[in-house]
Structures are given as C-alpha cells and as structure tokens.
C-alpha cells in the first residue's frame, strides 16, 4: 500500500517537473510571507481608519442636543426633476418685500433678476422705481437721489451691520440671499423657525428681548414671530395663512439662493438619458474587449 502511494506521489512529482510549468497567481492572504502579511494588515487598518476619520469629520457638530430638528416637508420642488412653483416664488417675493425686508437684506439680488423669472420687464421696472437710490456725483459734484432702475440692487434696511445691531437689541438679522443653503435643513429649517414660535416650556428662562423657538439652536431667538394669518393680502387671492406665507417665502428664498434651479434639473434629464446610453455602451465595450484576455490561460514554457 505504502509503496503504491509512494510510487503514485513520485509519479505526480515527476509530472510536476515536466516541461510545462503552470503559473498560478496565489493572491490569498494565507500564502503571503510574514512581512507582507504585516504590510497588508497595516494598509487595511490605515484605510479603515482614514475612512472613519473622514466620516467623523464630515458629521455635523450640532450646537445643542436640546434643539428640535425640523421635520422634512414635502416641498413640491424637492423632486429630482421638479421645478420651482413660480406662482409660489412670486407670492414669496411679496412676503419678503412686505414683511422680511424690514430687517433682512437680500444683498446680492438685483431688480433685473426678477425679469422673466417671476414678473415681466415693465412690472420689474415699476418695482425698482418704488425705491430711491443715491447716485452721483452730478456735474456739480453732488450726490443725488433718483428712482431705482433694473440694474439696482435690492435696498438694504440698514446702512451697515452696526446700525442693524443697534436697531435690533444687539442681534444682527442675517442677509437672506443664500440663507437656504447656509442653514442645515434648508427650507425645512426656515419653515420650522417661521412657524415654530411657542411659549417656553417650564423651567426654561428666556432673556428680556428674546423669544422662544425650539427649532433655533439654543432655543432663544432675537427675531420675534413675523408671520401671522392675513398680515398681507396676496395678489392672486391665495388665502394668506401663516403656513402659506412661510411656505411661499421659503420657496422664494430657495429660488434666490439657487436661481439656476430649474435649468439644472432640465439639464439633469438630458444628463441621465445620455449617460445611461454612454455608460451601458462603455460597459459592453469593456466586456467585449476583455473577453479574449479573461478567457485565456497563459502558460510559461521554458525551452
């Protein structure tokens, strides 16, 4: 028996030493040398650690655990291919102009930005003409006031930040141009702030001149509740409830922060369709070109 096994294995060994040597890539961890094992382990640990660190650094550090996080509302421009509701944006402009503009600026907005987006040119010109702008100097070297033009910026409620703070009990009303992108939660946060005012819970003290809002980090906000039912009357006859006002002004501020919103989504359809075709054909081509290589067995044949 033993001789039989020995002969068989000898023959197997002899066969292994025949002229063809099969080369096989041994890529399993078990077959690596000790040093290589260490290197692989160290590399793996470093990669995992790096990914973990990146995730940890990207996680938002929230100011307070006691802050109420805004719920997600079903905005009708939230879909992948959904455009902004321009009627809502237009109503939101009315809300901004009649309510928010008393304290908040839209520093980077010009009257020309309204043309062809929420109103016609003559209407935007009339809007601009409502404000007075300091221009000059004239031929006597004096500054003068003139009605606004399409090329003018939206008026600022305060000449500078210090004046704004002095008028608001030391709190600075932030510029609203990019506020939707500048706050966690975007429109949801703004909507919650605008509609979330309530009495402070027992044990929570709110300082003089501040107001309680559970959605604001820390709970105490300098801005008083601004939106109430029927505080303004809409042009198009929409009932001006508090939530309607808040929804419209949030939609407006989304448009202000992201005027390219609709164009971007229009391009999105094209990109999705074109890249589906391109990626599919690229994948097919890769398979087709690699198929002969992948199905080959490469042998080393020393002479």
């Amino acid at each position: 028996m033993a001789t039989l096994v020995g002969r068989a294995s000898k023959q197997a060994l002899l066969r292994a030493h025949s002229s063809i040597i099969h080369q096989k890539a041994n890529l399993s961890f078990k077959n690596l040398s000790k040093g290589k094992k260490w290197a692989v382990a160290a590399f793996g640990t470093l990669t995992a650690g790096g990914v973990g660190l990146a995730v940890a650094l990207n996680t938002a550090v929230l100011a307070s655990d006691l802050t109420l996080h805004p719920p997600k509302y079903p905005w009708d421009h939230a879909g992948l291919l959904s455009a902004l509701d321009r009627a809502s944006v237009r109503r939101g402009y009315q809300v901004y102009k009649q309510v928010c503009a008393a304290c908040h600026s839209l520093e980077y907005m010009y009257y020309r930005n309204l043309v062809g987006e929420i109103m016609e040119e003559d209407e935007a010109k009339a809007e601009a003409a409502e404000i007075m702008v300091v221009d000059g100097p004239n031929d006597q070297g004096l500054m003068f006031e003139r009605p606004g033009k399409l090329s003018d910026k939206f008026p600022k409620p305060y000449p500078n930040d210090e004046a704004a703070r002095a008028a608001n009990n030391g709190a600075l009303p932030p510029d609203l141009t990019y506020i939707v992108n500048a706050r966690h939660g975007g429109e949801n946060y703004l909507f919650s702030i605008l509609t979330g005012y309530c009495d402070p819970p027992a044990g929570v003290e709110v300082r003089e001149g501040l107001h309680y809002n559970p959605y604001f980090p820390g709970g105490s906000i300098a801005m008083a509740q601004a939106l109430y039912n029927e505080i303004i009357e809409y042009d198009d006859g929409t009932p001006a409830t508090t939530s309607q006002l808040a929804k419209d002004v949030c939609t407006f501020l989304r448009w202000v922060a992201e005027p390219e919103h609709d164009t971007r989504k229009r391009m999105g359809i094209k990109a999705i369709m074109i890249f589906t075709v391109l990626l599919t054909s690229a994948y097919y081509m890769k398979r087709a070109k690699w198929a002969p290589l992948k199905t080959q067995k490469i042998a080393f044949k020393p002479r």
Partner: peptide, 9 residues
C-alpha cells in the same frame, strides 16, 4: 412633469 409650475404658466 412640471405642468403649471414654470414661469410660462
């Protein structure tokens, strides 16, 4: 998709 929502509407 966006019938009635855009500026032309």
């Amino acid at each position: 998709i966006n019938a009635g929502k855009q500026y032309k509407d």
